[in-house]
Design a protein around this nucleic acid. Sequence first.
DNA 1: AATTGTGAAACACTTCACAGCC
DNA 2: GGCTGTGAAGTGTTTCACAATT
Lengths: 207, 207
Amino acid sequence: MANNTRIPDVAIKRLPIYLRVLRELQEEEVEIVSSAELSERTGFSSEQIRKDLAYFGAFGTRGVGYRTDLLSRRIMKILGLDRVVRVAVVGAGNLGTALARYNLRRYPELEIAAVFDNDWDKIGKRIEDLEILPMEDLPRVVAERGITMGIIAVPPRAANEVARQLVAAGIRAILNFSPVKLNVEDGVHVHNIDLSIELQSLPVEQN
Amino acid sequence: MANNTRIPDVAIKRLPIYLRVLRELQEEEVEIVSSAELSERTGFSSEQIRKDLAYFGAFGTRGVGYRTDLLSRRIMKILGLDRVVRVAVVGAGNLGTALARYNLRRYPELEIAAVFDNDWDKIGKRIEDLEILPMEDLPRVVAERGITMGIIAVPPRAANEVARQLVAAGIRAILNFSPVKLNVEDGVHVHNIDLSIELQSLPVEQN
DNA sequence: AATTGTGAAACACTTCACAGCC
DNA sequence: GGCTGTGAAGTGTTTCACAATT
């Protein structure tokens, strides 16, 4: 229950992975899980898992393990997923469409709440249940729907302008798939995924 | 030039980002760049950049900086990008299509060399210049085209079977977009990108 | 004068090892 | 007996500060 130590960033990044596994376990109707079992399913060491969970004063039971239902609720609370988080996708190309679809099914507490584009050929069309909206609607829709996160899936050229508009609309967390560094004010969290860079950091075996 | 210290993993992951910036600089016809300028453009500290580059015995010039052309060539060599790396995409849904398109333009040394699917409605159709091929062609095509990396963009259910087939075909580096842990033999490098997990690890601001 | 390259110090994270509890 | 929780040790990474070089 000691909570004077700072919680490592990397520990927080692992929580969603624990959560995914806990849900799989709950679907299998497993009620109790040990750190050893979580280790097998996640690939992290059991000590690390125990330590991560202990940072939050997690309540395992010695000699027994962790209750899957309690632990997953606890992690969701820590991650702020105890209420629905609404996300806007900007860019309705293949990537934006994939993202919009990808999340609609899994994880009910993450909701793609709107998709925007500036191409009038796409605006008005639908991805699943969502109508593609013009960029000028962004501020209004973000406010109306309580959107707090944005995903940028537009060409590199347009990315910084989109970021500016998202921030202007009040969004403080952005997942950026465009291969450019976003220049945003302090306090706005940006996480970048550049697919080329991910590929390039895989080791090349030159046979 | 000392190279007895082990090179940190994290340093290698930063190299592709340096490379991206170096290329931008080369397009702007900038011939020399300082670690301070690289710091501004990447967000990493200048000391860290100097240290990272020094691990590889990089040749900056004191009092001057780094030559963009030499440095980018050097990094490409380190990353194994001095010859073309060919990549297979498995799964021709929205995500697979986005991936196939995404890379075709940028980074000529990363080449999407084949797209596979098991849906006969998609097989035979084209994404840009690439015909979507049936999974049974995978071993032959991987060998013929010298493909060394695989991207998994199939539904979670199918992911492990696809991984098995990629590995059987001789591939030792996999970028996995499916939200499951792949069980592959030792020596196969897997890098996972789970879009839900990336979203979940963005901090939620609960106003 | 400017900027790299690098030991040393500081900090961050993981693993060890075992006490504590069920 | 089995498994969690946690200080302590070990390892990895970043930052500091400055000597070396052009």
